[in-house]
C-alpha cells in the first residue's frame, strides 16, 4: 500500500477553473502568494471570478495581473492599500470589494475548513462592517454571526510538498495558505521543492495531504518571489 501521487502539470490543474468560480489565494504581501499559479490563471483566462485573499498584492504583481486582465468581479479581502488599481476599481464600481477584519477573514476560512457553518463574534460590532450582519444574543453578550467562507478552488504556495500533497511552509509565507487549503473543493498547491513520499517528516507537515488535490512543482523561481526592492 502507498499513498497516491497527485503531481500534475500546472496548466492541466488550472484548466479546471471555470468562469464564475470562487478562488482563494494564499499570501500576505509577497511571501506565500502563488504567483506562478496566478499567472497560469491569467493565461487560462477564466472570468467573472470571486477572489478571496488577505490583500491585493502591490501594483504589477499577483492579484494585480488578474485585475488588469479584467477577470475579477468580486474581491473578498482585508486590505488593498498597496494596490492603487484595486482601490480605483472599487471606487469606480468595476470591482465589488468586501472587507473583513483580517482575523475574521482567517477564521471564516478556518470555519469552512473545519466543516462548521460559522461562528459568533463581537469583533467589529462598532464599525461599518457590522451593517447587515445577523445579531445573536449569547450568554456572554451580543455578537454577530459570521458565516463560514468556502471556495471552489484554493491556490496555495508551499515551500515543500511531497507527491501526496503533504505541505510545509516557510517562515511568514505560511499566513493564509494552510487555512485556504482546508476550505476549497479543489486545492492546487505549487511548491518550490517536491520531494518523494517520506521526504517531509510526519511531525513537520503543516497541511496534511488529504486536503490537497493537485501538486505542481515550480521550475526555477521567477524574480517576483524575491525581495521587493522599494
Amino acid at each position: 500500500m502507498s499513498l497516491p501521487d497527485k503531481t500534475c502539470a500546472m496548466a492541466e490543474a488550472i484548466a479546471r477553473i471555470p468562469d464564475g468560480a470562487s478562488v482563494m489565494l494564499g499570501g500576505f504581501g509577497v511571501p506565500g502568494t502563488p504567483f506562478c499559479l496566478i499567472e497560469a490563471l491569467v493565461e487560462h483566462g477564466a472570468r467573472d471570478l470571486t477572489i478571496i485573499k488577505n490583500d491585493a498584492n502591490e501594483a504589477g504583481i499577483g492579484v494585480d495581473w488578474l485585475l488588469q486582465a479584467g477577470q475579477v468581479r468580486r474581491l473578498i479581502t482585508s486590505h488593498i492599500g498597496l494596490n492603487p488599481r484595486a482601490v480605483a476599481m472599487m471606487n469606480d464600481g468595476s470591482l465589488d470589494v468586501e472587507f473583513n477584519a483580517q482575523g475574521i477573514l482567517a477564521e471564516r476560512i478556518r470555519a469552512a475548513g473545519a466543516g462548521v457553518m460559522g461562528f459568533v463574534t463581537n469583533i467589529g460590532m462598532d464599525t461599518v462592517l457590522a451593517e447587515g450582519k445577523q445579531r445573536v444574543e449569547t450568554a456572554t453578550g451580543e455578537g454577530m454571526f459570521e458565516p463560514a467562507l468556502h471556495a471552489d478552488f484554493a491556490l496555495v504556495h508551499a515551500d515543500c510538498a511531497d507527491h501526496f500533497g503533504n505541505l510545509s511552509f516557510a517562515a511568514s509565507a505560511r499566513n493564509f495558505n494552510p487555512l485556504i487549503a482546508t476550505a476549497a473543493r479543489c486545492v492546487i498547491a505549487e511548491a518550490e521543492r517536491v520531494v518523494p513520499l517520506g521526504g517531509i517528516a510526519p511531525d513537520d507537515v503543516h497541511t496534511p495531504g488529504p486536503f490537497v488535490d493537485h501538486v505542481v512543482e515550480l521550475p526555477t523561481l521567477p524574480e517576483v518571489y524575491g525581495v521587493v526592492q522599494r
Binding site: S78, N100, A101, I104, T127
Partner: peptide
C-alpha cells in the same frame, strides 16, 4: 479606504 487589516481586532 484601504481596508481594516488587523486594526479592528488589535484595537478591540
Amino acid at each position: 479606504s484601504p481596508g481594516p487589516g488587523g486594526a479592528i481586532e488589535l484595537a478591540q
